[in-house]
C-alpha cells in the first residue's frame, strides 16, 4: 500500500466518523426541540447554565442504553458525542494496520504505543483517584 492510499483511508475514517456523529447529534437536538415544543415550553424554557451543579451529567453505559431505547434526547446527543470521541481513536487504530500493510515496523510500534496511551487515558484514568483529585 502506498502512502497516498493511506492518506485516503485515514481521511475516510475521519470523514465517516464526523458525518455519523453530526447526524446523531442533530437528531438528538431535533428530538429535544420537538419534545420541548410539544410540552409548550420551547420559547419560554430558560436555560440557567450557571445554576447547574458541576459534575451533573454523569453517564453510565446502562443509563445510555436505556435512554436510547426510550429515544431520550440527552442520550442520543451523548451517543453522538461518543462517536465523535471515538473518531480520533479509530484513526489511530486504523494507522496501526495501515503502517503494518506498508511493512513499516517502526511506525507500527509508534502508533501502537500512541493507541495504548490513548486507551489507558480514556478507559483507565477515570477510575484512578490520582486523576480525580
Amino acid at each position: 500500500m502506498d502512502s497516498g492510499r493511506m492518506d485516503s483511508v485515514i481521511g475516510d475514517v475521519l470523514r465517516y466518523g464526523v458525518i455519523l456523529s453530526f447526524a446523531v447529534i442533530l437528531a438528538g437536538t431535533g428530538i429535544l426541540a420537538i419534545r420541548s415544543g410539544a410540552s409548550g415550553i420551547s420559547g419560554a424554557l430558560t436555560y440557567n447554565a450557571g445554576s447547574i451543579p458541576h459534575g451533573n451529567f454523569t453517564v453510565s453505559w446502562a443509563g445510555l442504553v436505556n435512554g436510547l431505547l426510550g429515544l431520550q434526547p440527552y442520550s442520543v446527543i451523548e451517543l453522538g458525542v461518543l462517536i465523535l470521541l471515538a473518531t480520533p481513536v479509530s484513526r489511530v487504530l486504523a494507522s496501526v494496520f495501515l503502517f503494518a500493510a506498508q511493512g513499516d515496523r517502526l511506525y507500527v510500534y509508534i502508533t501502537a504505543v500512541v493507541l495504548a496511551l490513548l486507551l489507558f487515558s480514556i478507559l483507565v484514568t477515570p477510575f484512578i483517584p490520582l486523576f480525580n483529585a
Binding site: 438528538g28 429535544l32 436555560y47 447554565a49 447547574i52 458541576h54 459534575g55 451533573n56 451529567f57 454523569t58 453517564v59 434526547p73 440527552y74 446527543i77 451523548e78 458525542v81 470521541l85 473518531t87 480520533p88 481513536v89 484513526r91 489511530v92 500512541v114 496511551l117 490513548l118 487515558s121 480514556i122 478507559l123 484514568t125 477515570p126 477510575f127 486523576f131 480525580n132
Partner: peptide
C-alpha cells in the same frame, strides 16, 4: 483531536459534558 480525546474520558467521567451545551 488525539490529545483532547486523551483527556475526554476524565471530563466525561466527572459529569462535565452537558448535552445542551
Amino acid at each position: 483531536g488525539v490529545t483532547a480525546a486523551a483527556s475526554a474520558g476524565i471530563y466525561y467521567a466527572r459529569g462535565d459534558v452537558d448535552p445542551v451545551v
